[in-house]
Simulated assay, not measured.
Amino acid sequence: MLRKILSCKSCSYRTVAGLDDLVARLRLVGQLRRDKDPDEGIVAALLAEYAALMTCPTCKAIGLQASDADDDWQDEDDWQAAVLCEVCRKPIDPERLEFLPDTKRCTECQHKTEAGTLPDDDPEFCPRCGALIEIRVSRGSGLTRYKRFCTGGCVIR
């Protein structure tokens, strides 16, 4: 399992990030937009190159450092920081993780998802150029129609 320590040179921020957290951070800097389940080797290679473009969540400085996590990384604070909710990015309770070790959402976000009040934030990307797809109202009379538009300028059929 891939685990890396991310730290900031400007402040004392330090966290241990698992594969899911690393993939989310790489997507924020424009990588892995199309790949739903990337290989650990690809994530490690991209992290080595793009960690310098990542923003520190505490001081907002650009440029994190990535290093390998030791086997004694399971200090309580680091363990919680390594397992973050995929929606709200808050640490998932240790009791929830003990009961459901593969969970990716905290209790609050899971309840919102089950109730249908959590919006689906999974973005769609253009198969031709990789830019974001927007859904817009089409012009015309009669029924309201929605069309998909590529933000990169491609024509989607």
Rank of each mutant, 00 (worst) to 15 (best):
K147G: 04
R145Q: 11
P94C: 01
E134P: 00
I62K: 12
P57D: 10
K36P: 03
L47K: 06
L22F: 08
D75I: 10
E76N: 05
L143H: 10
D70K: 08
G130D: 11
V155I: 11
V137G: 09
L26V: 11
D120I: 02
L46D: 14
K9C: 07
L28A: 15
R139M: 05
Q80F: 07
A17P: 03
C129F: 05
D72T: 14
E108T: 14
E114V: 06
E134D: 13
D21H: 10
Y146F: 11
L26M: 09
I135F: 03
Y146A: 01
I62L: 10
C85N: 05
C11A: 10
K147L: 12
G142D: 07
D78M: 13
V29D: 12
R145M: 04
T144G: 01
P101S: 05
P38C: 11
C129R: 03
C126P: 15
C56Q: 04
D122E: 13
P101D: 00
K147C: 00
C59P: 11
R128E: 13
T15D: 12
G18L: 10
A82N: 03
R89Q: 12
R139V: 13
T113E: 15
T55G: 08
C59N: 12
T107F: 00
R89L: 09
C88K: 06
C106G: 09
L32S: 04
C126W: 06
E114K: 08
R25T: 01
R34S: 14
E98C: 00
C129D: 15
Y50A: 13
A115W: 04
T103D: 09
D37H: 09
P119T: 00
G153D: 07
R34T: 15
H111N: 10
R136W: 01
L19Q: 13
T55Y: 08
V43L: 11
E134R: 02
Y146W: 03
V29Q: 08
E49G: 01
P91L: 08
E95G: 00
D102P: 03
C88W: 06
Y146E: 07
D21W: 03
C59I: 05
A66D: 13
R25V: 02
V23T: 12
D77E: 15
D35P: 01
A48R: 14
A82D: 04
F149H: 02
G116I: 03
L118G: 02
G30H: 05
L19P: 02
P101H: 04
E108P: 05
L26T: 09
